[in-house]
Design a binder for these strands. Structure first.
Length: 883
DNA sequence: ATTGAGACTTGACGCGAGGGTC
DNA sequence: GACCCTCGCGTCAAGTCTCAAT
């Protein structure tokens, strides 16, 4: 369980490694480690726990380590004292003069670039996908899976053995056929048709493959709504207020520029120019040279991914093809500036039923207590959580009691939590649950139908004439706040939301939804077509924040932005080499701010770290790249870094990686003279980082790297590892790739409660089979000598079998054992790895769809019904699509 | 330049349905 | 038919990022 043992950097020796950043990633062992290490961490963190006074039980929280991991940070984030003055300096100087930042260089760079770049009209993707433009993760994965141990100059001698986890998992596939019934009356196929904008753009994509990026831009730009183009522009240029035209929405507070590109802005030069195929068509070795440090010069001059977007960004009103999508009646949402829709109808939201008092009395100091329905409701909220880990957390109890006492009133007999006994209510609740469980199938069905009937009208919205599913039309019921990790507000009462908390957004001429609670009314009704939400209310726990009701993931609006996200990530592919050369050069910059940006970008690129926004004190103390504290990164000579921090959702990120020496040194410098709790990147925050990234590529932000790395890893692995074989084998390849991505993204899940029992069961079965095997072998030996088999374990005589029959049986048993051991291994491997999140959020569905088409794998084996709906826009991608 | 509001995406988890296994 | 397990799906918390106000 030694730390290092679990963290094996995968080292890859890509051709460009000598100039590129170190290649590493966490292997799944490392990721799995989380749970295991939680104990370790717990121990080490306990010293800080005093302040929180937790009495966490030894058991792991649903999040495993989380609860106990959250160490009481010794120093508050504010104490880190982010310098502010320095940063301005930093941000202006970040970009090397010779390269990217100053606008004035753009033209030159552009020209240089154009000269350097070959024109490319051919397919953009390099069929062989040289690794240069691939994320490390991909390179790792590929090398890992091929079980080659590669090393790079900087890492020689430190190469770790390839973890077994890299071996192909023969994951058992149990995908069900997606049921044919679509969620609405509209068949899937026609749904696609309905989603014009999305669909049409899909079409475009297919053809994009053959086009140079610049054309893609044009296309995108021309596509009604969207595009990263506009988004990029948005990020670079603020939209003049005058451009905001939301059909006279005076209510619109902050119309988002998003899709709209003011004409002026559109023509403004943008920094980088997508570098088409220049390198895709060049052998890796040459590319390396080109971009090598030696080439720093050239890279620094030309690299500056500059671009004149103006022309390419102009909406060229590219024709939609006469395909099925053109049939759609849908009006392109982007017809107006920042406009998301033209007409919007919906029925508002549905509220949870009012509280029904049960009358079960809890005990206080051993005596039953009378509670009003309001008081009982809150008591019940706690009672039903009695056997969760929350109920054992001091903060949770404290917050709960504080809020409950307000409802109990000053003079209530209940004062101390210790004297409260919620058991009667808890048991009542258990009985209710049991009753529900015991209902007959018919009763359950009837109940379900009844619910559906009530909800049906809220489930749909009509957006620009198209019926679309609404995502979360149910208002959140009251309850106790279940913050993750050591959230300071956990246990607080999340009060009931009423109509007058809710703001409705609806089309101007559309009928305002009737308030479902008689005698009450909506807080406000807006007609803001620059946003996509249908309703919102203020979060009762944090009134500064909002809870929105949006359309479902399967809607055109969501599909469209999904597609834009992946297009942006694909665009990064064309810039990545320059970006890497850029930050590699800045590792040793004299300007500390520049160095910090370089190192942070490196970490985000290589480790898929999140950006790491600042957080308030009333949130769980988690970090991302920009908010890493000095204690989150340990230097392990000669050039390893050990990361250990709680990231989003208080999920532990624990990883030891080999890095380039300059990075190692830089981190050491950043830590110098700082105390625990201080920011590692004190000259940096996410806005500076993203501002810098935007200088390198239009619209580039930190999170794009995650999408890029995930998708390109999948694409690379699928294409490298898929062999001829049956569908099951191909799916195994897919799952293997999916797993690698999940590991890169640190997508974890808590170990299921029954995991160890399941493993034991498998062990038992394997043991049984092995015993059987031994028996069979003995019988075989005897049979060969003409002797009858020995009696069975039960003492009964066995059938006399021929040696051939016994040999067959032995082979069968061996196969069974093998399969079970494989299953066991997979189960263990995926114990803490969640595959779903990456599939839903990071993997460009077109990669999967195209791969399925190429390899004749039914798409239903990869995407379930909801993913099929969500990714409707990707379904008609050309089989040759590569990310 | 900083801050905070606002909008939207990403994320883990829990529950229930349904299929497989004993 | 009981039990177990997986998977789909909904929930809602927690991120990212932009923009306007200060």
């Amino acid at each position: 369980m030694a730390v290092d043992a679990c963290i094996k950097p995968k080292i890859i020796d890509d051709d460009d490694d000598d100039e590129g950043p170190a290649v590493f990633k966490r292997n799944n062992t490392a990721s799995r480690k989380n749970q295991v290490n939680s104990e370790l961490k717990k121990a080490s963190s306990q010293r800080n726990d005093g302040s929180s006074g937790k009495h966490v039980s030894g058991s792991l929280s649903p999040n495993g380590q989380n609860s106990s991991l959250q160490k009481g940070k010794a120093v508050s984030k504010t104490s880190a004292g982010k310098p502010t003055a320095a940063s301005s300096n930093a941000s202006t100087s970040i970009a090397d003069k010779s390269r990217c930042s100053p606008q004035k260089n753009l033209a030159i760079n552009n020209m240089q670039k154009q000269q350097l770049n070959k024109p490319c009209n051919g397919p953009k993707e390099d069929p062989d996908d040289s690794d240069d433009d691939k994320p490390l993760s991909f390179r790792l994965a590929t090398s890992g899976s091929s079980l080659k141990i590669k090393s790079q100059p900087g890492t020689k001698g430190h190469g770790s053995p390839v973890p077994s986890s890299l071996q192909m998992d023969k994951t058992k596939i149990t995908c069900k056929k997606s049921s044919a019934d679509s969620e609405d009356e509209i068949p899937l196929s026609s749904k696609f048709q309905l989603k014009t904008n999305v669909g049409s753009s899909v079409k475009k994509y297919d053809s994009d493959e053959e086009k140079p990026l610049i054309f893609k831009f044009q296309q995108n730009g021309s596509s009604k709504k969207d595009n990263e183009l506009s988004k990029s522009l948005k990020s670079l240029n603020k939209r003049p207020m005058s451009d905001v035209n939301t059909s006279g929405q005076s209510l619109v507070k902050k119309p988002k520029l998003s899709e709209s590109i003011p004409a002026k802005v559109k023509q403004a030069p943008i920094k980088s120019e997508p570098k088409e195929d220049d390198e895709d068509n060049i052998p890796i070795s040459q590319r390396l040279k080109k971009s090598a440090p030696s080439d720093n010069k050239s890279s620094s001059t030309k690299k500056t991914t500059t671009k004149v977007v103006s022309s390419s960004f102009k909406k060229t009103s590219k024709k939609l093809k006469k395909d099925k999508y053109s049939k759609s009646t849908k009006v392109p949402p982007s017809s107006g500036e920042g406009q998301k829709w033209t007409t919007l109808e919906h029925n508002g939201v549905i509220f949870p039923p009012p509280y029904k008092p049960h009358g079960v009395k809890m005990l206080y100091n051993g005596q039953p207590v009378d509670l009003t329905p309001e008081q009982e409701e809150v008591a019940t909220m706690f009672a039903v959580m009695k056997d969760t880990e929350y109920a054992t957390k001091q903060k949770f109890v404290e917050n709960f009691m504080n809020d409950w006492k307000v409802i109990l009133g000053k003079n209530h007999v209940i004062k101390k939590f210790e004297l409260c006994d919620f058991t009667p209510i808890y048991e009542w609740h258990q009985r209710e649950k049991e009753k529900k469980k015991q209902m007959s199938a018919e009763e359950k069905k009837a109940l379900k139908e009844e619910k559906l009937k009530q909800e049906e009208k809220y489930m749909w919205a009509i957006v620009d004439g198209v019926k679309e599913k609404v995502g979360n039309f149910r208002v959140e019921p009251p309850g106790l706040f279940r913050g993750r990790g050591e959230h300071p507000k956990m246990g607080k009462l999340k009060r009931r939301i009423r109509p007058n908390d809710i703001t409705i957004n609806i089309g101007k001429g559309a009928p305002v939804p009737e308030c479902p609670i008689p005698g009450e009314r909506w807080k406000e009704v807006k007609h803001d077509n620059t946003v996509t939400w249908l309703a919102f209310w203020n979060d009762p726990i944090n009134p500064k924040e909002f809870k929105y009701v949006f359309l479902a993931a399967s809607s055109s609006l969501k599909g469209q932005s999904d597609k834009e996200k992946y297009e942006k990530a694909r665009l990064l592919k064309d810039y990545i080499k320059d970006i890497r050369a850029n930050y590699t050069r800045d590792f040793s910059s004299k300007d500390i701010a520049k160095r910090q940006i370089a190192v942070a970008t490196y970490l985000i690129d290589k480790l898929a770290l999140r950006a790491g926004n600042e957080k308030d004190d009333d949130e769980a103390d988690t970090v991302g790249c920009c908010t890493l504290k000095v204690e989150n990164v340990e230097l392990i000579p000669p050039n390893k870094l050990q990361f250990d921090f709680l990231g989003k959702d208080s999920i532990r990120y624990f990883n030891t990686v080999e890095v380039e020496l300059p990075v190692y040194k830089a981190i050491g410098q950043f830590k110098e003279g700082k105390k625990e709790g201080e920011d590692l990147f004190d000259k940096l925050d996410t806005s500076k980082l993203n501002a810098h990234l935007k200088e390198l590529m239009p619209g580039l932000t930190a999170k794009v790297f995650r999408t890029y790395n995930a998708s390109i890893t999948l694409d690379g692995m699928l294409n490298k590892e898929t062999k001829d074989g049956d569908v099951a084998e191909k799916i195994t390849v897919y799952q293997h790739a999916n797993k690698e991505v999940a590991i890169i993204c640190n997508h974890q899940r808590s170990v299921s409660k029954s995991h160890s029992a399941q493993m034991n069961r498998l062990d038992d079965k394997i043991k049984e089979l092995k015993e059987l095997l031994d028996e069979l072998k003995t019988d075989l030996a005897r049979a060969k000598k003409g002797k009858p088999p020995l009696k069975g374990a039960d003492g009964k005589p066995k059938r006399n079998l021929t040696p051939e029959a016994l040999e067959r049986k032995i082979a069968q048993a061996n196969a069974k054992i093998e399969k079970m051991e494989r299953d066991k291994q997979i189960k263990e491997d995926l114990k803490t790895v969640a595959l779903g999140t990456s599939k839903i959020n990071y993997l460009d569905p077109r990669i999967s769809v195209a791969w399925c088409k190429r390899h004749e794998v039914p798409i239903e084996k990869i995407f379930n019904k909801s993913l099929l709906a969500k990714f409707a826009w990707a379904m008609d991608v050309d089989p040759s699509f590569r990310f």
